[in-house]
Amino acid sequence: MAVLKVEHLCKQYASELVVNQLSLTIPAGICFGLLGPNGAGKTTTLKLCLGLITPDSGSIELMGMPVPDAGPKVRLRVGVVPQFDNLDPDFSVAENLIIFGRYFGIKPDVVRANVPELLAFAGLEGKEKSRIRELSGGMRRRLTLARALVNDPDVIFLDEPTTGLDPQARHLIWERLRQLVAKGKTLILTTHFMDEAERLCNCLAIMDHGKIIAEDSPKRLIENLIEPVVVEVFGDGLDDWLATVATGTGCRIERAGETIFCYGQDATAVLQSMVTFPGLKSVVRQANLEDVFIKITGRELRD
């Protein structure tokens, strides 16, 4: 059964179509990733699906309820981890969970009994009485995740859950998110980290300019949308090499600053063409999700 069904969703700010005819169907029990450069419309899409902003047109159905017509009650079985920290600085760690439970109509005693379990899940054992200001960025993000679980939701929306975290904190969050999927929860997350998308998500939608431009499992996106081997070439003589022999290799060639990326079926032709350019260096690797992403969203900088 589809947990989220979005059809022809549009949202315009000023003259810009931030979400443009977007359609999505997300089945229960998977981790679904919305991948896209900054300004692609990921956060707006999440907010629309949560009923926090009103769409201009299109339809959204979250767990069988029409959004935003069904009102705030669609969020009863939903957890949200927002992009920016909005923990309540006036309260301690445990109080944050208890107060948040109240907004769902959960009695303080019920949440209080669950606090140790929630904090253990977030790796925050013994932090009940800590002030929010005393927590590191990683701890805050984990507490935000624990807070999103206060109502034992079926679906959890996460907007860039690991942005700004160190590798240790990111790995812990990933590990916890996998546990949630194993428990049967549906995760819907936005990210612009390729490794996050590749490791966590069963299904990915790559989004740009308010549209979904590719949708599949990470593995199949790589298989279907990009050549299997990449040779990165850099060093002295790059311009000469590019002007003379590079195009003869039969590879798809892209330049980003002082590096040339050659995409092809294998590396042999490229490596042979470099023999007469002793100043050139190269790295041969398998194509990955980032190559797919760059190929379909382009190399130009986004703000």
């Binding site: 949560l50 926090l52 009102g71 705030p72 927002p82 909005n86 006036d90 907004y103």
Partner: peptide, 17 residues
Amino acid sequence: VQRTWEAIMHAPVSLDE
């Protein structure tokens, strides 16, 4: 500043409430 209203709206509470 604290985005407390935003957090509350992630629960089933409306802006009017």
